[in-house]
Amino acid sequence: MSSLDVRTGPRGGAVRKTETVAHHAPPRNARRRLRNDLVALAFLLPALFCFGYFAWWPLVRGLELSFQQTNLVDPAQWVGLSNFQHVLDDPMLATAVKNTLLFAGLALVIGFPLPLLLAVQMSTLRRLAGLYRYLVYLPVMLPPVVGVLLWQMFYDPDHGLFNKVLGLVGLGPYPWLQSTHSAMLSLVLESTWAGMGSATLIYLAALTRVPPELYEAAETDGARIWRRMWHITLPQLRGTVLLLLLMQLIGTLQVFAEPYLMTDGGPENATVTVLLLIYRYAFIDGDYGAASAMSLLLAAALSLLSAVYLWSTRRWSSS
């Protein structure tokens, strides 16, 4: 059954509709409102359960933990700001922040323009557009673990696919993950491969919504394709571009699986990221206080970005 059947049914009774609205629109009667509130509460129970236990409470608990020292067996001790102090004193924090920013920056430089250009090209396709979209989105469907393990094999300096392919044209061999200079770049390449498809499709959708009249008007004014792209396409996309930029930043600042699986933070700490450090604090050292303190610091940074994101969503959708 298609949704349209239902839609046409009640719509037919337009006459009755107007009179019922007068009677039933938000119950004015206090008792009825209370009843409505309670019924709604019943419907909200699953959400309250899930969000209460697994979203709201952990936030409160995280705040509490960051001021405590606990081995989870004996009662926790309040330690004031000492967790924060320990975390901020850890020389690894600076390294991790630097690495995370490097990852985010490289991901921006490589992973940001690529989908945009690709989407512009794909938006002009009149044939086989489906095939292009299919191809570009294929890697996104794979579990990240599969991509990471596959690329790890490709990066093998002796037997890996990449050095073999580059060797054919006389390049390399490159150390990829084995060098402090190229390890992070290698992680970014993999994650660009794995994530590029989403951004491309989002741009593509935005591109197809650029009103054709704008192009027609520009063409009448004698603007060539490149000029139209520069003066119409890109400005029209800026809302989408800003959103994706922020989403990408928020995502990349939380990078974990790639360094965890591919390099374990090496070589020489070149790929230790903030999240990897938090993970080590909590699940390797058992220092939940320090892990929570660092999470809180990360949360502050990310919330700022998220706030910009939500604010701009509202702004761009209402403008």
């Binding site: 979203a55 936030l59 995280g62 933990l65 999240l275 909590a282 929570s292 990360l298 949360a299």
Partner: peptide, 8 residues
Amino acid sequence: PATVSLVP
């Protein structure tokens, strides 16, 4: 982000 409240 979910990863931040991972430990709690």
